[in-house]
């Protein structure tokens, strides 16, 4: 039987919370990447992303993807989960974009598979190559970004953005958004559960819409009240409109070493893949 809107919403909220807990558990594993300074991880990933984006040699990009997989493995990220996470959703987005590129209409070249002879519509060798480039490039880039997020707790990653000169007030807001999104998710989940426990049978679509709009209204009003109280709590502890934050990061020799290695790999990949 098809699940009701309330059930689906509840399931989706629960799934989101579970995924986050799972990701946080990975970030806490004693793996190689987890032990590195988050700023080094951030800069390394950005350098490798640049290399992936500018490399014009398929084998170089494939090599970088293998490197990402090895890094995931030594960082105790479950490989099945990691690969699935990237490649299941990718065809729906990049695949659709890559599809027209296959054909001679967009990418002229030697036909490999002719679908229609007059006028000629065929998949070309050049088209296949271009599509492979696009998919592999996007897949590797997404894998790099996901790996970074999996091996670094969100709040640490946000704090590491300071190395890119992101203003501290922006980091404070991002941090608070991340912190309170869970409270609001929990509130929404509690509200739906309370409603669900008092419903016998299925709600009519109009009643379901009514429930959703009500919930949105209540959540909006709660978050508004919460934001006012949080601001008072900040004022109470000396906040005067200019947030001051303190990083607890300390660079160890191995962080410098890792950063240098990652930058070297990126430079070599760019050189090898210069086309």
């Amino acid at each position: 039987m098809a699940r009701s809107l309330v059930e689906r919403t509840l399931a989706s909220v629960t799934h989101t919370l579970e995924q986050t807990l799972f990701a946080e558990d990975i970030a806490r594993q004693p793996g190689v990447l987890q032990s590195l300074d988050p700023r080094v991880k951030l800069v390394s990933v950005l350098a490798l992303l640049l290399a992936v984006s500018f490399a014009r040699n398929l084998w170089v990009i494939a090599g970088l993807y293998l490197l990402v997989l090895s890094l995931a493995w030594v960082s105790r990220v479950p490989l099945g989960f990691f690969v699935r996470h990237v490649w299941v959703a990718l065809p729906f987005f990049t695949g659709l974009v890559a599809l027209p590129v296959l054909f001679n209409v967009v990418t002229p070249g030697a036909p490999v598979l002719t679908l229609w002879s007059n006028p000629l519509i065929a998949i070309t060798a050049q088209g296949l190559r271009a599509a492979a480039f696009l998919i592999l490039r996007v897949g590797t880039s997404v894998s790099l970004a996901i790996l970074l997020v999996l091996v670094t707790p969100w709040n640490t990653l946000l704090r590491a953005l300071s190395v890119l000169r992101v203003p501290s007030v922006f980091l404070l807001i991002l941090g608070m958004t991340y912190r309170y999104i869970y409270l609001l998710l929990k509130t929404a989940s509690d509200m739906f559960e309370a409603r669900q426990s008092r419903v016998v049978g299925r709600l009519q679509p109009a009643a379901q819409r009514h429930l959703v709009t009500n919930t949105m209204g209540v959540l909006m009003s709660k978050s508004y009240g919460l934001s006012q109280d949080v601001y008072l709590a900040m004022l109470s502890r000396g906040y005067r409109g200019r947030p001051r934050t303190l990083d607890r990061f300390t660079m160890q020799p191995r962080d410098w070493l890792w950063g240098a290695a990652a930058l070297s790999v990126a430079v070599v990949a760019l050189w090898l893949g210069r086309g």
Binding site: R179, V230, A233
Partner: peptide
């Protein structure tokens, strides 16, 4: 504050 969720607004 009475509500600890109000008081604890930082990421860690």
């Amino acid at each position: 504050f009475q509500d600890a969720d109000v008081q604890l607004f930082s990421p860690t």
